[in-house]
Design a protein around this nucleic acid. Structure first.
Lengths: 159, 159
DNA sequence: TATTGTTATACTCTATAACTATA
DNA sequence: TATAGTTATAGAGTATAACAATA
């Protein structure tokens, strides 16, 4: 039996790593979403905040940040920007909280946002061979939930 | 038959979007890779460059950048940093090109890099139910290749 | 003419710390 | 004490433009 002294090196050593493929696929998909939102004058993060506000009128900046994994400190300029654009109102509910609600203009734009997200998602799905589509999405949720459960455990142990 | 005036809004309107799940899964996986590389004193991008140099000794900065989707302008400080760390030598091959090769120290560290990447990838895989694993990876490559083919077409039409 | 490496620069994203006002 | 919002700031990551040297 022969002994192989060195593992053979692939021409592209990153390609076989699923994590790297995940990152490349994600950033490419993100670029398409950004492209589809550009005509609306919104970045993906702003568009996602609008969708959340529509589904949870009166949600606080902190609520939205927790849902979308955006830090409180970064929600402030984001919310102010949406208010300046006439898309949301920031109503003091509580003395320390600000509940966000869509304006008429914000509601109209959010309807377009939803269409843009859905179009991007359709495009993504069509790039995957049919037989893998269902399992792909299930696997993504398994990953997302698994990593998130772990990070919640980390939070507990560091407090 | 009843008419429904408004589409009901889900509690989390981003969750059903595969593209959003893709982004969340990717950034969580990336965080774990960064964590696993931290003891080696390397960021993911630096670690990936080392792996590429090992598999393609003498590759130029531009070569590596094309493979890893890193701009030439950003390869320069990256390569200088690896050289300062004693991990790579930058050899003038061509008068304008610099071929990168690993030093002894770089080779030793790259072996550890490979183990760290593989551990991260194993962790990722184990978070996915077995029945979805194979299809998940196939779907990722389909996505990556599909978006990349499209961006190559865009490059052609803009030149 | 096209390509390599380089520099300078800018913009976005993400993260931390510190502060206030309120619950 | 814990939480909401705010401000300032810092660090990555990514991007563009311009230039010199070389192919």
């Amino acid at each position: 039996m022969q002994t192989r002294r060195h593992t053979p090196q692939p021409a592209d050593p990153m390609r076989p790593l699923a994590g790297y493929a995940l990152r490349r696929a994600s950033s490419a998909a993100m670029a398409e979403v950004a492209e589809n939102l550009r005509p609306l004058g919104l970045r993906p993060v702003e568009a996602s905040v609008l969708l959340v506000i529509r589904s949870r009128p009166g949600a606080t900046q902190s609520d939205i940040g927790r849902l979308l994994n955006i830090l409180r400190a970064n929600m402030t300029p984001l919310a102010i920007g949406l208010e300046r654009g006439g898309l949301v109102r920031r109503e003091k509910t509580d003395g320390r909280s600000r509940g966000l609600v869509l304006t008429e203009k914000g509601m109209a734009l959010t309807a377009k946002v939803q269409k843009a997200f859905e179009a991007s998602d359709r495009s993504l799905s069509e790039r995957i061979p049919k037989k893998y589509r269902e399992g792909f999405v299930a696997a993504l949720y398994a990953l997302w939930d698994s990593y998130e459960a772990e990070s919640r455990l980390d939070d507990l142990s560091s407090s």
